[in-house]
Design a protein around this nucleic acid. Structure first.
Lengths: 216, 216
DNA sequence: GTAGAATCTGAACAATGGTTCAGATTGTGG
DNA sequence: CCACAATCTGAACCATTGTTCAGATTCTAC
């Protein structure tokens, strides 16, 4: 019963999130106002304040939605029981697909400093948790000898996440290159730069994120 | 004579740019207002409008300043007469040093969509020119057999620039890791992911950007 | 059919921030 | 010393945006 109510609340909030995401893409994240979002939904602006306390809560909801999805891709990559290079490869692919195809909140994800307390701490904790997942894969790989011993897992993780995150700035659906090809190429380059046997290593050919999807 | 006047105008405008940069860092790029910038300089807000037509011109000036510096690092890397992997390596290092140490306008550099016409077209042309420089190095390397033949120079360039650009979001002077070490590690990973002989390739040990600077 | 809960409206309010400009101040050349 | 140019001031104006809330509408349970 309570679950049904909560599900309805979440559905309504996610509907607003999707409208917000549309406005983020059209006007830019920082130029997106509450009136624009309400107009996008065809509702009065006051209604937004029935479902969200204020704009900050809406932004936090967007970022949380995206981070939840990213953490889920990390979980699925982990579940593969693959070695660290393959696991990291899937993580990179998953990150790009998540930001550019699955997660409507991804534009908000980039805006690290747009949140103030109290939302900021909670969202930062989620970001840290996700980054720790990625770094854990890299560190495991170094320990197992699958990644070079002279890399710093923290720095390598920052390099990986930077490339993936920045893709939101330039990738456009329907562009010259399909997203999955870009995702594989990024994953190839970033992982190959870390493995201890780059000349014999080859990237995975299957996995959980439909990398051979119908855009080829 | 005219040169002296232009130099004075530029000096004044760069002084304002540095104040703007300070405010960008403290308040975040999008929360930085003209009053804040004027306060930072201890001047009346109207003075800003004596030297800049409006806020957009100031933002464009910041981005142009940063892009000019980036193009200069690309020129210096090119002048080395090194092969493509070494050249790209220096470009990556130069990019990170430029954004995080030399160029006060770097926070503005990230904000691709904050500019409207007519400034946007001019700045976008500079961005394209810089990206073309980087991509040219990658394409040359593929042609010469120094980079893998199966990479797409455009995608590889986007991967490289994404990592480097995103560093502005998290790097802090005085942090746990010195900038040059981070820059070298990024360049190592990104170039090693592209070279055709990653197991025998080793990164440059000297170059134009003081990578062995006194932070070690 | 009705009471009460849930949901919604949209004008008004307050705050913010970009910009203007009449007038003031400073600098410079004759 | 003075005219004129260059530079500067800061209050006021205007537009925008987040938010509120009294009241309206819709929904639901009895």
């Amino acid at each position: 019963m309570v679950q049904i109510v909560e599900s309805r609340v979440r559905d309504r909030r996610r509907e607003i999130l999707r409208a917000a995401s549309d406005v983020f893409r059209v006007r830019g994240f920082h130029a997106a106002g509450m009136r624009d979002i309400a107009r996008r939904l065809g509702i009065a602006v006051g209604k937004l304040y029935y479902w969200f306390e204020n704009k900050q809560e809406l932004l936090a909801f967007c970022q949380e939605d995206c981070l939840t999805a990213l953490l889920q891709t990390a979980d699925r990559a982990r579940e593969l029981d693959a070695d660290a290079p393959a696991c990291l490869w899937h993580l990179v692919v998953g990150h790009l697909l998540c930001l550019n195809e699955w997660s409507p909140g991804s534009l908000a994800h980039l805006e690290v400093e747009s949140l103030a307390e109290p939302h900021r701490a909670r969202i930062q904790a989620l970001r840290d948790r996700y980054e720790e997942r990625v770094r854990g894969v890299v560190a495991d790989g170094v320990r197992a000898g699958r990644f070079r011993h002279d890399i710093d897992p923290k720095v390598a993780t920052l390099c990986v996440l930077g490339s993936a995150n920045w893709s939101v700035k330039w990738f456009r659906p329907g562009g010259a290159l399909p997203l999955r090809r870009i995702a594989r190429a990024f994953a190839d380059q970033l992982v190959r730069g870390l493995v201890s046997n780059p000349e014999s290593w080859s990237p995975p050919t299957d996995g959980p994120f439909s990398v051979e999807a119908p855009d080829e």
